[in-house]
Simulated assay, not measured.
Amino acid sequence: MTISEYVPDAPCEVLDPAAALFHSLSDPTRLAIVQRLASGEVRVRDLTSELGLAQSTVSGHVACLRGCGLVQGRAQGRSVYYSLTRPELMDVLAATEVLLAATGNAVSLCPNYGLDARDTPQIQEITR
Rank of each mutant, 00 (worst) to 15 (best):
S56P: 01
S39T: 13
C68H: 08
P11R: 14
Q72F: 12
A18L: 14
Y81E: 04
Q72M: 11
A94T: 09
P8V: 04
D27E: 06
S39Q: 14
A38N: 10
E5Q: 13
L70V: 03
L51H: 00
T120D: 02
A101S: 10
A94K: 12
V7E: 04
Y113K: 13
P11L: 15
T29L: 06
E125A: 11
S108Y: 06
V62G: 01
R74A: 12
L109H: 13
V14G: 03
G60R: 01
T96I: 09
L89S: 01
V107E: 12
S39E: 13
Y81V: 11
T85W: 06
R45F: 10
T2M: 15
V7H: 03
L84P: 01
H23A: 09
E41I: 02
G104I: 04
M1F: 14
E13C: 09
I33F: 01
P11D: 13
L84M: 08
T96S: 08
A20F: 06
L93S: 07
S79A: 14
M1V: 14
A75W: 05
L84Q: 01
A106N: 04
L100A: 12
L115Q: 11
S39R: 15
S39F: 13
A75D: 12
D116W: 07
M90P: 12
H61E: 00
P87F: 04
R128A: 10
L99E: 01
R30D: 05
S26T: 09
L100H: 05
V42E: 11
T57V: 10
T127S: 06
G77N: 12
H61F: 02
G77H: 11
L65A: 05
N105A: 15
A117Y: 04
P121W: 07
T48S: 03
E88V: 06
R118A: 15
D16I: 14
Y81H: 08
H23P: 07
Y82K: 07
A10N: 15
G52Q: 04
V92N: 01
S56W: 00
Q35P: 00
I126A: 10
S59W: 08
Y6C: 02
S59T: 13
E41G: 08
P11M: 14
A117M: 02
D27R: 02
A18N: 11
I33N: 00
P87Y: 01
G69H: 00
E13M: 14
L31T: 01
R118H: 15
L70W: 03
A18C: 11
S39D: 12
V34H: 00
D119C: 14
A38R: 08
E41D: 02
L65W: 08
H61D: 02
S56Q: 02
Q55C: 06
R74M: 04
I3G: 07
R78F: 04
T57G: 03
V34Y: 01
S59I: 07
Y113T: 15
E97P: 01
V7F: 06
Y82N: 05
A106Y: 08
E50F: 08
V80E: 12
S24Q: 09
Q72H: 12
R86Q: 13
A38I: 03
N105C: 13
T48Q: 05
S56E: 00
A102V: 07
P11G: 15
H23I: 09
I123H: 06
P11E: 12
S49T: 11
Q124M: 12
V7R: 04
S79Q: 08
I123N: 10
G69E: 05
E41W: 01
D46F: 04
